[in-house]
Amino acid sequence: MLIHPWDAALDDSEWQTWLASHDFGQLCVNGPGGEPPFVQPLHFAYDPERGDHGEVVTHLARPNPIWAAISASPQVTLSVVDDYTFIPGPWHAPEGAPPEHGTPTSFYAAVQLRCVAHVIDDPDAKAALLHRQLAHFQPAGDHALVAPGAEPYGRMLPGIRGLRLEVTDVRAKFKYGGNKPRAMRRAVADRLASRSAPGDPAARAHQLRRLAATDS
């Protein structure tokens, strides 16, 4: 992922705050023997307090073909993309130029976590991992205890494998026209508010937030 200086995260707290509310992504694993990469959509829970760059926990069904690929190459990437929208060319036309001379582009936020994957098969360790996920997705505690041999989930444990992703590096990008003149960026924010298509409110919020951060 190319990250120009004007699209880079302002600091670690920017991408960490964003990732805290984005817990669905794609796990990318090298395919064995020159095959294309495996790309697995999944929910996950990210804990920034574990390790130097944080840790991710998730689980997948035992028959998933991704396990052989992880065993062959445990270096994986978890990719999360959201808050995207399309910016028509006329919105970015230089001052005094015909509107059709503007260049269309995409706005989006993206975080890529490079990780070392650790497969969890021990029943007690899998149960503990599932509790960490449940604590993230159902913090109210409205779920049964996960324990080997205990109802209702104990009988399901053999059918899954846990996955702990040790994050070794983070690449974060907030592509919201940071290289454009400030007046143009504010005009684009106004147009996003008027269009109000799916993705526009979040993209506008990012653009205004990053403008305010550079103002200060």
Score class of each variant (00 low, 15 high):
G154R: 11
G178H: 11
G34I: 13
Q207T: 09
I3C: 13
R164Y: 00
Q112S: 05
H43P: 08
F137C: 03
A127C: 05
A68I: 03
F137S: 00
L78Q: 05
T77D: 02
A212L: 03
A9D: 06
I87Y: 13
P32A: 05
A8S: 10
L2G: 10
L10W: 02
V39L: 14
S79M: 14
N179V: 01
H143C: 05
P99Y: 04
T168N: 09
G154H: 01
G159I: 06
L211C: 07
H131L: 07
L42K: 03
F86S: 12
C28P: 01
Q207N: 07
E151R: 07
D121Q: 06
E49K: 14
T214A: 15
A128F: 05
A202V: 06
A140F: 00
Q40K: 10
A183G: 08
D122W: 00
N64Y: 05
S71G: 05
T85D: 15
V56M: 04
L211A: 08
A109W: 00
F107A: 12
G89N: 09
V80T: 05
A202D: 11
L157W: 09
P201K: 12
H43Y: 06
P181L: 09
D122Q: 01
P37M: 12
L130I: 13
Y153F: 13
D190C: 01
V81W: 13
A140Q: 10
C28T: 12
K180M: 12
N179T: 04
K180N: 10
G162Q: 01
V170C: 02
L130H: 03
R186I: 09
F24E: 01
I70V: 15
A150C: 02
E166C: 12
G154N: 10
G89Q: 08
T58S: 10
R164G: 00
H59S: 09
E35N: 09
I160Y: 04
H59N: 10
P65H: 06
G102V: 03
H43C: 12
G199H: 00
A69H: 03
R161P: 09
H22S: 02
V76A: 09
T103E: 12
D122C: 00
P32R: 15
I70K: 09
Y176Q: 14
L60Q: 13
G159H: 12
D124T: 10
T105H: 07
S71C: 00
V56I: 15
A189V: 06
V116A: 14
A110V: 04
V111N: 13
D124W: 08
G102K: 10
L208T: 07
M1N: 11
L78A: 07
R171S: 14
A69C: 09
Q16L: 11
L42F: 04
E49L: 14
V170P: 00
G199M: 03
L145E: 15
T214V: 15
L27N: 08
R182Y: 06
Q112F: 04
F137P: 00
N30T: 14
A72D: 11
H206W: 15
P88W: 13
D122F: 01
W91I: 00
P104A: 10
Q133G: 03
T85A: 14
A9M: 02
